[in-house]
């Protein structure tokens, strides 16, 4: 048992994650070709616009079901929404926000773009603290809008006129996954500007703009899009009941900042916060790079319920960040290699 634990703690989780991401990418982008169907309420970007998708992103379900008059929403029909929320939560609690770090195809694409940038040796950028705090709100605004706009299509708020049907599934209309993921199945039909009327022109142009931002942004900043992702916001609302947990023992922390340095999302609180036990924040995607980079014994732990499955250790740290990674011996000083 101890040997297994040691082996895991010394492991390179990022490499493991890389391969898991490839597998889940195949699953969530090509799954239906393997006759897999996982349901309508997945807590990740499995996009039904993509013919290969094995399921549906929960955000679509939300937008569809909010497109209901209040009278029916608060009748028995409301149960429909509750059950789909329930199945979303059931999926979600299994892996908590690791859905983002390990399974989201859009996240995986961003990680690949980061890898490409890394290959080219181009530096990345980060938000400063103030922008970080300000921008963190955007995903909640998007989340609220994707509830409110469909409601406003079916209902009149305060006697105001109803919103046009062209605003159906407003988030999908601007979501980069809707355009990118079908491309992987060879379907380019989502790359268009809809000239039906003004609203569609605006929304579909916006989508192209967001798409461009997605590529440029994620080339400059790691996991650029995740910062604004309403799915991430929605997930965070349920994060506390997740089975998979990321916890910290504040007393063991030297606040050296290794964890926040390597964090793709640039979360500072993981290093600065020495009182919280649960250190999953709304921007966290549970990639566990922080645990890998922590050299203090048992300071950061990944747990399933209260059972530790991966902990920060000295040995593991030096295995991952140290000469042994490449070779036992240091290269000679003036090697040209």
């Amino acid at each position: 048992m101890n040997n297994i634990r040691k082996w895991i703690n010394n492991a390179n989780v990022s490499r493991f994650r890389f391969w898991v991401q490839i597998l889940t990418f195949i699953l969530f982008v090509y799954g239906s070709y393997f006759l897999i169907h996982i349901g309508q309420n997945l807590p990740t970007f499995a996009c039904p616009y993509n013919p290969g998708s094995p399921g549906t992103c929960f955000l679509i379900s939300v937008q569809h079901q909010m497109h209901t008059p209040f009278s029916s929403l608060f009748s028995w029909r409301g149960l429909g929404f509750l059950t789909s929320l329930g199945s979303f939560v059931l999926f979600f609690v299994l892996f908590n926000k690791a859905w983002c770090g390990f399974m989201c195809p859009l996240g995986t694409i961003q990680d690949w773009i980061t890898k490409l940038r890394n290959r080219l040796g181009i530096r990345f950028s980060n938000y400063d603290e103030r922008s970080f705090k300000r921008l963190s709100w955007i995903k909640y605004v998007l989340l609220v809008l994707l509830f409110l706009i469909p409601l406003a299509i079916a209902n009149s708020f305060f006697g105001l006129p109803k919103v046009s049907h062209n605003m159906m599934s407003p988030f999908c209309q601007i979501c980069p996954a809707r355009i990118i993921l079908p491309l992987f199945s060879g379907d380019t039909s989502q790359m268009f500007i809809n000239f039906t009327n003004t609203t569609t022109i605006v929304m579909s142009s916006l989508a192209i703009l967001v798409l461009a931002l997605f590529f440029v942004g994620s080339f400059v900043k790691k996991r650029f899009f995740c910062f604004f992702c309403p799915m991430s916001a929605l997930q965070y609302l349920f994060s506390r009941i997740g089975i998979l947990r990321l916890t910290k023992v504040g007393d063991k922390c030297t606040r050296c900042g290794n964890c926040s340095r390597v964090c793709d999302m640039g979360i500072l609180s993981i290093a600065e916060d020495i009182t919280s036990v649960n250190v999953v924040t709304d921007n966290c995607m549970m990639c566990f790079k922080c645990v890998e980079a922590c050299p203090e014994e048992g300071c950061l732990d990944v747990k399933v319920f209260n059972f530790k499955i991966f902990s920060s250790t000295e040995e593991g740290f030096f295995k991952r960040y140290n000469p042994d990674g490449d070779s036992k011996e240091l290269p000679p000083l003036n090697s040209k290699k």
């Binding site: 890394n118 040796g121 530096r123 990345f124 050296c256 964890c259 390597v262 050299p295 960040y321």
Partner: peptide, 12 residues
């Protein structure tokens, strides 16, 4: 205390 580097380039 130790150094943790994310991308092994001078910029990081």
């Amino acid at each position: 205390d130790t150094v943790a580097v994310d991308e092994w380039f001078l910029y990081d």
